[in-house]
Every structure is written in C-alpha cells, then in structure tokens.
Amino acid sequence: MARIRLTNKRRKALIGLTFVSPWIVGFLIFTMYPMLHSMFLSFHRVKITPTGIKTTYVGFENYKYAIFSDPAFVEKVLKYLQEMALNVPIIVVFSLIIALLINQKIKFRGLFRTIFFLPVIITSGPVINELLNQGATSIPNIEQYGLFTMIENSLNPVIAEPIMYLFKQIIMVLWFSGVQILIFLAGLQKVDQSIYEAARIDGASSWEIFWKVTLPDLMPLVIVNVIYTIVYVSTFALNEIIILIKNNMFSTITGFGYATAVAWVYFIIIMLMLAIWTGLLSMKKR
C-alpha cells in the first residue's frame, strides 16, 4: 500500500477543512438539507394530517399560480421592488453619513456610537412585538404616537404630509442601519491617517478628500453593506412577503407546498437584485 504523502499544501488544506467542519456539519443538517427539502415540497401539494405529511406531485403548478394567478403575491412583489430601489441607497448612504459623523472628534462620541447601534436590539425582539401588539401592523405606524400626532394636528396637511413621510422614512432607515454603521465605522478607522494629511498638504478640501480618498477606500464595505441591507430588509420577519408566505403555510387552500414555492420565487428575486446591485457598484469602481 502506497503511503499517502501529506504534502505541505495538502496538510494546510486539511487544517482548513477541520476549522470549517463543525460549521459545515451544522449548516448541512439544519440549513442546506431543509432548504433542499423545501424545494422538493414546492413541487408538491402538501397536506398535513395527524398521521403525517402527505405530498402529491403537481409539477410547476405552485409556481405558475404564484407568478400568474396570485394577485396578492404579484402586487406585494412590485411594492417590494419599489421599496428596495428607494430604501437600499437611503439606508447605505445614511449609515455612511452617520459613521462619518461619529468618527469625528466630538464630545460624547462613545455615547452617540452606542445610541446608533441600538437598532440592533430594536428591530429584533420584544420591542417590535410590543409595537405589533399595540395594533401597529407595520413599523411606520409608530407615527401614531406623541410627536407625530402633534405635527399632524398643528400643521397644514400640505406641509404635514411630506414631513410625515420623511419621518416615517427616517425611522425605518434608522432602525435598519445599526450594523451597517458599525461596518463603515470599522472601515473608517482603518483608513491611514497619513493619506489624509498628505491630501490636506496638497490643498484638498474635506469634500474632495471624501470623494477621492475615503470613498474609494470604503467601496468594498459599501458592497458588503448593500448585501447586508438587502438581506436584512428582505428577510425581516415583518416584511409583507414573509407574512404572505407565513399565512399560506397553514392555509387549507394553498398549504405549505405553495408557501415554499413563493419562498423560492422570492429567493430568486432577492438574488437577482443582489446581482444587479453588486454589478452596478463594481462597475462604478473600475
């Protein structure tokens, strides 16, 4: 028997795989396999009976129904695409601005950083649940409280309307931007200070420095943040399409098979959107 020679390269690969293996095992069992199984179910009509789960093969029926016949799904997807086209740039630009601001040498910097990282515990967990329990079915409904009522009552509707819209957006954007701010902040702290000094000596204004030095440096992180934002907003538990999928899951008419088909169509939409966004951004880089 020939001895397997452990070349240096092979040894390294083996160590690498050992490091990844616990993750691979968990991922395969609890994420990959369920995903593939859900794809299998999406081609079936699924009935949950007390004795078990009964499936009948229906081919592309579920998909056809979702794309061509289900008015709720098509309408929600269009609305979702519209929102994403607006919200992704707003969230990313906003978190960049906040990161730049709290990277300045100002007093209470630590406090501000803490506050702007708070959304991480707001958008997941009991705060959102509580707002939901209050009959606020979507996040923007928080506008009912206090300040917003005040604005509505004290101002002419023509002026109040755009202000309200802006406020709603601000809150949405703020709530979804915690981790993105952190990612930018980490990137900003890494930018070599001597480059700034050199630029300043050459007579560049802060504005020029931002566009010529800071932004190109942060570009990879912009892409990371775009991906993170799209994923976070799209798979957020209160997203309308997710609620639609949830409602279909235990519906007696459509059922789990249909819900998974919708989920897969949605998955492909998210993927396409990510491809378009990252494509656009890396084109600009060149």
């Binding site: 859900s38 994923v231 538990a237 899951m249």
Partner: peptide
C-alpha cells in the same frame, strides 16, 4: 442561504 426566507424551512 442568507437570502432564503427562514420560515420557509420550518417544516423540513
């Protein structure tokens, strides 16, 4: 996997 809707894998 990040992009996949988590609740859609509930039954599997």
């Amino acid at each position: 996997a990040l992009m996949f809707v988590p609740i859609a894998v509930q039954i599997p």
